[in-house]
């Protein structure tokens, strides 16, 4: 992939940092993780936290419906023209990793139609612990797990847990009710991820998405520098 190389023609063929007109494209951040861990809720909270300070859009990759896109539309976290659903043929991990063509078209169309954009969040449909985003599609990725999915997930590892640029452990408010040991999850995550950051969050809390939003702001500052 040519990360800083422009091509002739109307659309870039890879993850070029510049758009065909020479302007810098939006930062793309992927959000993946198991079904029900709170990816869409995190995207919605990020949109609410960031929409007044920067120009952003969302691409969803649902498994068999437009459910995630429709949730975001219903919650009115962004105007409808800033939310696009990609159909994945029952395989979100294929659409975000092995064959990213539909997602690249979705992000480029968003920039063409509502741009200029600073940030595009690309959400994967719920998938397994090995589902990661291609570097040809996103610049950084967040893996979202939750305490109710089992506190052994950080120990089990897998590419999502071990390599994501940010690991989010969601629904910490549920830990006492499902018998999850947050200290153990933190220690296991540290063992798997070394210096890579981990955020424990509960979106039920006031400003619960703050840490993740701050991480996104830092990524954007580095991208724009």
């Amino acid at each position: 992939m040519h990360l800083d190389h422009s091509h002739d023609g109307p659309s870039a063929v890879s993850a070029d940092a510049r758009r065909p007109d020479g302007s810098r494209r939006a930062l793309r951040i992927g959000l993946g993780g198991p079904v029900g861990s709170g990816k869409t809720a995190t995207v919605a909270a990020l949109c609410r936290a960031l929409r007044d300070e920067l120009s952003l859009a969302v691409v969803t990759n649902d498994i068999y419906t437009r459910e995630d896109a429709e949730f975001l539309l219903r919650e009115a976290v962004l105007p409808p023209e800033r939310i696009t659903a990609v159909e994945t043929g029952a395989c979100p991990h294929t659409a975000i990793r092995d064959d990213i063509s539909a997602n690249l078209e979705a992000v480029e169309d968003l920039e063409d139609e509502v741009g200029p954009l600073q940030l595009i969040l690309v959400e994967s449909g719920g998938d397994n612990l090995t589902a990661t985003f291609s570097k040809g599609l996103v610049d950084a990725q967040i893996f979202v797990i939750d305490v109710a999915g089992g506190d052994d997930i950080p120990r089990k590892g897998g590419p999502g847990v071990t390599t994501a640029d940010l690991l989010v452990v969601n629904k910490t408010d549920l830990a006492p009710y499902v018998g999850s040991d947050l200290a153990r999850m933190a220690a296991d995550a540290k063992a798997q991820r070394a210096e890579l950051p981990v955020v424990f969050q509960s979106l039920r809390a006031e400003d619960g998405v703050r840490d993740v939003a701050d991480w996104v702001r830092a990524q954007l500052a580095a991208w724009s520098a």
Binding site: E87, A95, D98, D99, A102
Partner: peptide, 12 residues
């Protein structure tokens, strides 16, 4: 069939 051109999402 793994050529990355979007075919996986279509059933013909």
């Amino acid at each position: 069939g793994r050529f990355p051109a979007g075919g996986h999402a279509h059933s013909g």
